[in-house]
Amino acid sequence: MKNWMKKAILLGLSFWIALVLVKPVGVSTEFEVVAELLKNALTGQPLENPISYGMVFVLAMPVGAWLGNRYDRKKEKTALAEEPFSRKEFALAFCSGFFLLLGARIAGGCTSGHMMSGMMQGSVSGFIFAAAVFLVAIPVATFRKK
């Protein structure tokens, strides 16, 4: 089997197992939970317990990546050079995150919730969201300065 297909089957399985056991995968809601917590803390309102299924799901994602990454690095035995991370890059990453979550919360979901889980269920909003995202992202990525 081709390499890309193995990766795709793994990813598809992760969508489906989450759906069968609990609910479709989704990430951006948890950003709003954190922002809500922050807002309440700033305005002195009572804080709600943010720990939920969705929150631990998102917090566990880097652990999965770390496991895969560690295995790969052991196998290849090549030390990855630490990428330099300048202030400019920080600004770019921060802005990108800002637009991503502002947009995702207005739309009611992100790549995982709308695009992957949504389209998998044949949801109309998932298809429309994906079309809107690529309509802008393709020219932005193409004309973005390297």
């Binding site: 770019l92 802005c95 990108s96 995150g97 800002f98 637009f99 991503l100 979550l101 502002l102 947009g103 995702a104 919360r105 207005i106 739309a107 009611g108 992100c110 790549t111 709308h114 429309i128 969201f129 994906a130 079309a131 809107a132 995202v133 690529f134 309509l135 802008v136 992202a137 393709i138 020219p139 932005v140 990525a141 193409t142 973005r144």
Partner: peptide
Amino acid sequence: GGLIFGIGFGL
């Protein structure tokens, strides 16, 4: 939201 998301995605 999708259009705004696209800015961040491409950027």
